[in-house]
Amino acid sequence: MNLTLRIWRQSGPDDPGRMVSYPVPDVSPDMSFLEMLDVLNERLTLDGEEPVAFDHDCREGICGACGMVINGVAHGPERATTACQLHMRHFSDGQTIDIEPWRARAFPVVKDLVVDRTAFDQIIAAGGYITAPAGSAPEAHAQLVRKSDADAAFESAACIGCGACVAACPNGSAMLFTAAKVTHLSLLPQGQPERSTRVVGMVDAHDAAGFGGCTNIGECTAVCPKGIPLTSIGRLNRDYLKATRDRDGAPGT
């Protein structure tokens, strides 16, 4: 099939950037979306133009590196699918496809479709962990975990940190990402001691990074390739309210 791509080109952080059209002939329906961009890039290179920069690595939907807004939808039209796992069979001959980077102040554009997502790492560094230095761990079976809790923790832990939730959120909020980690860790017994400091630290880091506030709209879950549920944000809110209430509360509260 033949397609027209309109792609955001921006040579660097200081370039204002613009949409540029490229015809791409002979696209096979078995190609992945990124393979289609590879084909375009091969041609641009030989024509002496700069290829389109985009992040990608695993191409299996797990590393979270890839990400672009395709026709207004983060990761494109297929639900629960990353851009790298999106296949061209979901598009039709003659279609025009708009491709843009994630847009958020906290994710500045590096070049073309590549953005800087360091803010996510900062949120994790502010509390998204369980303190367990190597060597200090008790025997794994010393603490049992209800299967339902372990399974639910897993669901949230499946977040790949891609940033689609931010890209789709009308508020530019990263609450789904933050809540996924809070939920993962607060569902497990190992995560209890740091439960309050974790949520407060992470939410503060989230706000400091310049993400917007959450108004529970739900665009994030709709585009999330891992289907992280909106309920996790409720869990975060509950933990946050409790934590700010007991912030300097006495031990044992």
Binding site: Y129, I130, A132, A134, G135, S136, A137, P138, A140, Q143, V145, R146, K147, A150, D151, A153, F154, A157, H184, L185, L188, Q190, G191
Partner: peptide
């Protein structure tokens, strides 16, 4: 070590 860190292994 992994369990202590909160790795959600199957149970």
């Amino acid at each position: 070590q992994a369990v202590a860190q909160g790795v959600p292994f199957a149970r």
